[in-house]
Write a protein that binds this DNA or RNA. Structure first.
Lengths: 204, 204
DNA sequence: TAGTTACTAGTACCAGGTAATAATCACGCT
DNA sequence: AGCGTGATTATTACCTGGTACTAGTAACTA
């Protein structure tokens, strides 16, 4: 078919857009244009295609939801802010350690938050409808403390792009110091065999 | 003094206004003019005097509030309910998979929640002031789905009780089916050598 | 070369306001 | 009756963050 390159560009951007808005629902189209370096019309077309309402509608929905209170909390799914994402290749996310993430006595971050950031990112990098963690081998290299900013970088091993199990390496830094390292084996659903298939949905 | 009647009129209206907005924060100034049969400017003056922000600000505040609530919820302290705990020996915890823990499309639990339960339990088992995860080797044996109850069982390898690094094995079951298995290396602070030390705090 | 897709650009319009300025009303007091 | 004062209304310019629509361009490709 036509313009496969644009299609992936577009798909990729839309996936990222979806993730960015999901993670920060208070962002305006204006701010998104800067983030993605495309015109505001493109952002708006993307939102329409993805069925994402405008900022005010999003806020209204959230406000109504909190007003109804009864509703269960739609936990946000990705831990950390995704800063950069190249599907099937790499990704970067930022996670800031707050009060609620640390042991109160030591102010050291609980391991599972650091893991969650890496795990979320590893799953996000996989360009597939379903991506699940199958195995992980992780190392907490030094403890992370309150208010530190963790930058996680994930790389997919290129050899595994087409297989049903992808290996993703994640390195998490505070500044230039490595604090965590993990090897993830991610199971992917149906890496649409030999391309061709047009996938409509995003992963989250 | 002058205009006592108007003043009470005004006071009364402002009281009512305050109550009405409180009761229905989604009302516009336009609708309020009809409700009170005064001009829109009067409504706005009233709002200013009362320090009530405009509709959009009100919605934004509510949205942010609910967002912060959601944000602080995900991975708090201990994940799962600890059912049984024998310090330096073993522990059992229960974690029920809810809407907020799963991928919305597949209803499969996100790996980091399953990890968090195991990690929390592994740390809890260690009878020490400071216990941090140093390494972990984990396997997601089968995917866990919405509403399933995960029973995690942790065992400390007895040989390691006195060392500064403890090895803890965690097995997580749904029913009698093993869904997750992990080997944790937990760093412990100062296994207060030869007892004697009085420990006051708990670990979290 | 024509056609498709992606993207950009620009205009008109909207809701729901803020801010500021001026005009008008109502009432009470002397 | 006339004046002052606070309450109210009217008017205008401007703002944000959009929607809706039309048109044009670039890139690729069949």
């Amino acid at each position: 078919m036509v313009v496969t390159i644009e299609r992936t560009h577009k798909r990729q951007r839309q996936q990222q857009l979806s993730a960015v808005i999901d993670q920060n629902p208070f962002i305006t189209d204006e701010e998104l244009t800067q983030r993605f370096d495309v015109s505001i019309q493109t952002i708006r077309l993307d939102r329409m295609e993805l069925g994402i309402p405008e900022l005010r509608e999003r806020m209204k929905l959230m406000a109504e939801q909190s007003y109804d209170q009864v509703k269960s909390l739609p936990l946000h799914e990705i831990i950390g802010d995704i800063i950069d994402l190249q599907l099937d290749r790499s990704g970067i996310s930022l996670f800031e350690v707050k009060e609620e993430h640390v042991f109160s006595r030591t102010h050291i971050a609980r391991g599972h938050h650091i893991f969650a950031q890496a795990n979320s990112l590893a799953v996000a990098v996989i360009n597939d409808e379903i991506a699940l963690t199958a195995k992980a081998d992780i190392r907490f290299i030094r403890s992370v403390k309150l208010n530190e900013k963790c930058i996680a970088k994930a790389y997919l091993r290129p050899a595994n792009v087409e297989k049903s199990h992808a290996k993703v390496e994640v390195f998490t830094y505070v500044g230039d110091e490595l604090v965590f390292q993990g090897n993830f084996m991610i199971y992917r659903s149906a890496k649409d065999s030999a391309s061709g298939g047009i996938k409509i949905e995003d992963s989250y």
